[in-house]
Computed example of a mutant assay.
Amino acid sequence: MDLLQLRYFQAVARREHISQAAEELRVAQPSVSRTIARLEKELGVPLFDRQGRQVRLNSFGTAFLRRVDRALGELDEARRELADAAGLEHGRVVVAAETLLTVTPLVARLRAEYPGVDVRLFQSNADTMVRQLGDREVDLCFASQPLTGPLLRSAELLREKVLLAVPATHPFAAGDRVGVADLAGEPFVTSRAGYWPRALLERIFAGTGSRPVIACECDELGTSADLISAGLGVGLVPEMSRGAPTPTQGPVVWVELDAPGCERVLSLVWRADTYLPAAAQKLRELAHVMLSRL
Rank of each mutant, 00 (worst) to 15 (best):
A86I: 01
L266D: 05
G87R: 04
A78P: 03
A108E: 09
S241R: 11
R14H: 08
S292T: 02
A85P: 00
L200G: 08
S31P: 05
L25K: 07
D135M: 08
T246A: 15
A85K: 05
R284C: 00
F205D: 01
C141E: 02
R34H: 14
D182L: 09
L163G: 03
P238N: 03
L147M: 03
E137G: 11
P251R: 01
V32S: 01
R26N: 10
V269R: 00
E98G: 06
C141K: 01
R38Q: 14
I204R: 04
C218P: 00
R153V: 12
R15H: 12
E42C: 03
F142A: 06
G209L: 00
P277M: 03
E239G: 03
L232E: 13
G243S: 13
L3T: 14
P247T: 01
V27A: 07
V119E: 00
P105F: 01
G179E: 12
E217I: 06
M1L: 14
D49W: 10
R70F: 09
D135C: 07
V27L: 10
F142E: 05
F122Y: 14
A280S: 00
L286C: 00
R198C: 10
D182S: 15
T169G: 15
R109G: 03
T274W: 11
A11D: 08
V237I: 14
G233I: 02
V107F: 01
R120C: 10
E40Y: 01
P46R: 15
E24D: 15
A11K: 04
L286P: 03
G91C: 01
R177D: 11
V45A: 04
Q51M: 14
L268F: 09
R67S: 09
A11S: 13
Y8L: 07
V253W: 05
A11E: 07
A181H: 10
L236M: 09
G235K: 03
G149D: 10
G73F: 06
R14D: 04
A215R: 06
V255S: 00
Q123F: 01
R198G: 06
I36C: 09
L39G: 04
V162C: 08
